[in-house]
């Protein structure tokens, strides 16, 4: 596999759209040709070489092309959009739509990604070491065909609307997720190793959600049907099985109604039922509080920002209300 390296040399003034950063676009091109590929900033057209130093050569096809992108990529959208093969390694934290509509190949992001990544994905692998924001592996607006295949793995947390309209494939989140998981799903598998909040599996017709941590609030339209010994992403144990969404239509197979399923891991203490709803109150130590204060000194952070920071730094998830109060406290003390 041949490698092309892109190193950002100039920050774009506005956000940049760079769907041309894809093995499919680079394959069999000279580095001049790659440099001349268009990128867009608002209503202006530029070229890749305006913003990136380009070295190395691509393979003959997408499948034997690897791209390594590095630099401050927080204003770069659409990396790896629609790619069908090869590899993209992102050394940084790109903006929205990473791997949107990708059909094959691998994208590995060493940092965080913003929203709408892996949208409408049909195949390939999207690996995110950090956190992902909202609508990961979701459908484009209005489309009833969300993620249909492939695999997404998030090292950290994911935001809201994960796996909206999912139809196939697999998403694994090692951290926590925000509200609305696999809404309208008609297939596929979601594994959440941390905690979930509410609206897990809302309006789900079919598909499986595994939650290894807690669900803050279960949908009232889900029904507990018993425990099962199973494995979720290699983690075996006793899981509560919930079926739903009972507000939704469901198909039948061999006379039996097919529901969406939530598998909720029973804790080693043998208890799970209480974990539903019960929000454990986590207290921040004074030392932790000080760290947070220092990190945001002179800034006006939003709740989600602080919450993400706490989650990233200390690996704990506290409720927004609590974060909000803490921010108030900080401000009052100033």
């Amino acid at each position: 596999m041949d490698t092309v390296t892109l190193t950002m040399k100039m920050q774009p003034e506005l956000y940049m759209e760079a769907e041309t950063i894809s093995p499919d676009q680079f394959a069999a091109k000279s580095s001049e040709e790659i440099g001349a590929l268009p990128v867009y900033m608002g209503n202006e057209h530029h070229t890749l070489s305006d913003f990136f130093d380009i070295s190395g050569n691509p393979g003959k096809t997408a499948a034997d092309t690897k791209i390594v992108v590095s630099g401050d990529l927080t204003k770069v959208k659409y990396i790896g959009m629609k790619m069908t093969g090869g590899e993209v390694e992102v050394l940084g934290s790109p903006d929205m739509y990473v791997g949107a509509w990708m059909a094959g190949g691998t994208i590995r992001v060493k940092g965080n990604v913003d929203s709408f990544c892996g949208m409408g994905m049909t195949g390939g692998e999207l690996l995110i070491d950090g956190n992902a924001k909202n609508y990961l592996g979701a459908a484009y607006r209005g489309d009833w065909r969300g993620m249909q295949g492939g695999r997404i793995v998030v090292g950290g947390n994911a935001g809201s609307d994960l796996a909206l309209f999912m139809r196939g494939g697999e998403i694994i989140v090692n951290g926590n997720v925000d509200v609305h998981v696999a809404t309208h799903a008609e297939g596929g598998t979601v594994v959440i190793k941390g905690n979930a909040k509410s609206r897990v599996g809302g309006q789900m017709v079919k598909g499986d959600i595994y939650v290894l941590g807690e669900i803050e609030r279960m949908m009232p339209s889900y029904k507990y049907i018993g425990d099962e010994e199973i494995q979720a992403d290699g983690i075996s144990g006793t899981y509560q099985v919930w079926i739903g969404d009972l507000g939704e239509r469901h198909g039948k197979r061999k006379g039996e109604t097919i529901y969406g399923k939530i598998y909720l891991k029973v804790k080693d203490t043998g208890k799970a039922a209480e974990s539903v709803r019960a929000a454990r109150k986590i207290r921040l130590s004074d030392d932790q509080k000080k760290q947070i204060k220092d990190a945001f000194a002179g800034k006006e952070p939003g709740v989600q920002e602080v919450r993400a920071f706490i989650s990233d730094t200390f690996g704990i998830d506290i409720k927004p209300m609590q974060v909000s109060r803490f921010i108030d406290e900080m401000r009052r003390k100033e």
Binding site: S198, G202, Q203, M218, M219, P220, S221, K223, L246, G247
Partner: peptide, 19 residues
Amino acid sequence: DYELLQALRAAVRGQELTG
């Protein structure tokens, strides 16, 4: 509201609600 709406939908279908 979302929880209430889905509960109403389940109730319209004659399903048992949790809680």
